[in-house]
């Protein structure tokens, strides 16, 4: 059954008609040509489809597009955009940090890692604890262990984890100073 929806993707308002069965991920990739979020497992298990959905990190493979009519979505490609597009200098500090710290090899998981990291840094700044925070009542301090735990929903088949953690830690420390 079809539904008319609008999504604002990386700042651009897009109207489309989708079968109710279409996930947000498939709507983005196959219907709108927004291929920054990737499809890994399609079952919520790998995190490569992560975007910022109304400002918060979220997987898009277990969400029906129709249930997110009116949503505002930011993909990794749209983070810090406003530059010259593909091939231009990466605009967001996370992008630059992933390059500097070798935070990827094949790059397939990277857009999901970047969006997840962006959402995670905002969560930590808001004082949200994690499963490794020694006392959940206290404001957590973002160290390597915290970053690993908070990023555990993003798998990397190339095993670029040391670079990913270093990149995110670098950005987090940059923000603190």
């Amino acid at each position: 059954m079809d539904a008319d929806i609008t999504l604002t993707v990386d700042g651009e308002r897009r109207a489309l008609t989708v079968d109710t069965r279409v996930t947000l991920l498939d709507a983005l990739r196959d219907r709108l040509g927004v291929t920054s979020p990737k499809k890994g497992c399609d079952h919520g298990q790998c995190g490569t489809c992560t975007v910022l959905l109304d400002g918060r990190r979220a997987t898009t493979c277990l969400a029906f597009a129709v249930a997110h009519d009116g949503a505002e979505i930011t993909t990794s490609a749209g983070l810090g955009a406003g530059d010259g597009g593909v091939g231009a200098e990466p605009a967001h500090p996370l992008h630059r940090a992933f390059l500097e710290h070798d935070g990827f090899q094949c790059g397939y998981c990277t857009p999901g890692q970047i969006c997840s990291a962006a959402g995670m840094l905002a969560e930590a700044e808001a004082g949200w604890p994690s499963a490794v925070t020694p006392d959940v009542a206290e404001r957590p301090a973002l160290d390597e262990a915290e970053i690993r735990e908070r990023m555990s929903g993003n798998l990397c088949r190339c095993g670029a984890y040391p670079g990913i953690v270093a990149a995110i830690l670098g950005v987090a420390e940059g923000r603190r100073t």
């Binding site: 919520g44 959905l53 918060r56 990190r57 277990l62 959402g119 959940v136 990023m151 929903g153 993003n154």
Partner: peptide, 19 residues
């Protein structure tokens, strides 16, 4: 109720818990 926060934080992932 720290037990409740800890239980939630031990489940799924950050991007799933937001949904």
């Amino acid at each position: 109720y720290p037990v409740l926060a800890e239980a939630l934080l031990s489940g799924a992932s950050g991007q799933l818990r937001n949904l």
